[in-house]
């Protein structure tokens, strides 16, 4: 418990950002027509690929002789970018179909 309080004290900005982001997420998503649920889910899924930034950081910090760290980092980058590129491309393809005929 003390350590948690200590962490919050040391990272007060992060804590604020964390909590405010939750509200932003809820507000931004709220009241979305059911039509867009699937593309939205797909787009949000692409965004969760932001974890790739961490994967790149792992590789940048790796010792070139640390084979295990490099392999895991390499895999993490591949999987992360798959999530990003695949996610955005699929969302784009879905939305491409929403043409309004008038």
């Amino acid at each position: 418990m003390n350590q948690l309080l200590e962490f919050i004290k040391d990272n007060i900005q992060i804590t604020y950002i964390l909590i405010l982001s939750i509200f932003v997420g809820v507000e931004v998503i709220k009241s979305i027509p059911a039509v867009l649920h699937t593309p939205l889910m797909s787009g949000a899924n692409a965004l969760s690929g932001v974890v790739i930034v961490g994967a790149i950081l792992v590789m940048l910090h790796s010792d070139p002789n640390d084979f295990i760290a490099l392999t895991l980092g390499f895999l993490a980058v591949v999987l992360g970018i798959l999530n990003v590129v695949g996610g955005f491309a699929v969302t784009h393809r879905m939305l491409q179909m929403f043409k309004k005929k008038k």
């Binding site: 939750i22 998503i29 949000a44 969760s48 932001v50």
Partner: peptide
């Protein structure tokens, strides 16, 4: 960017 992006997806 990871923090906010992740939380956005989490709450969405």
């Amino acid at each position: 960017v990871m923090l906010v992006g992740g939380i956005l997806v989490g709450s969405a």
